Simulated assay, not measured.
Amino acid sequence: MSVEVKIGIENTARELSLSSAEAADKVYAAVTAALAAADGVLELTDDKGVRILVPAGKISYVEVGSSESRRVGFGAT
């Protein structure tokens, strides 16, 4: 099961959105550790193996949630 992560960044109109294979608890731990450090950097890896680095001082918010597939259209049940 993958986890959907959305990160709001200061002075940026769009949020950074990624899907991670990590468990939600591991993502929360990474966010907490990055925010606790003086010059922390949030490091996450998406489900394709791409590493994302965000300076913790620029993070406005982080949303972590399940990325259960939402069916839309004629195939939705």
Rank of each mutant, 00 (worst) to 15 (best):
M1F: 06
S2A: 13
S2Q: 11
E4D: 14
E4W: 11
E4S: 14
V5A: 12
V5S: 07
I7D: 00
I7S: 02
G8R: 04
G8K: 05
G8I: 01
G8V: 03
I9Y: 06
N11F: 12
A13R: 09
A13L: 12
R14T: 11
S17R: 15
S17K: 15
L18R: 09
L18D: 06
S19I: 15
S19F: 13
S20K: 09
E22V: 00
E22W: 08
A23W: 00
A23D: 12
A23S: 12
A23V: 10
A24D: 15
D25K: 14
K26V: 09
V27W: 07
A30M: 08
A30K: 13
V31A: 02
V31R: 00
V31K: 06
A33L: 04
A34G: 03
A34L: 06
A34V: 01
A34Q: 02
L35G: 05
L35Y: 02
A36T: 02
A37L: 02
A38M: 04
D39G: 08
G40Q: 05
G40N: 01
V41Q: 07
V41Y: 02
V41A: 03
V41E: 11
L42I: 08
E43W: 03
L44V: 09
T45W: 00
T45D: 03
D46M: 10
D47C: 07
D47R: 12
D47P: 00
K48D: 13
G49N: 07
R51L: 04
R51A: 08
R51N: 07
I52H: 14
I52M: 06
V54Q: 03
V54N: 04
P55C: 08
A56H: 02
A56T: 06
G57V: 04
G57A: 03
I59R: 07
Y61T: 04
Y61V: 01
V62L: 08
V62I: 05
E63K: 14
E63F: 10
E63L: 15
V64A: 15
G65V: 13
G65E: 15
S67M: 10
S67F: 07
S67G: 14
E68L: 13
R70Q: 13
R70G: 09
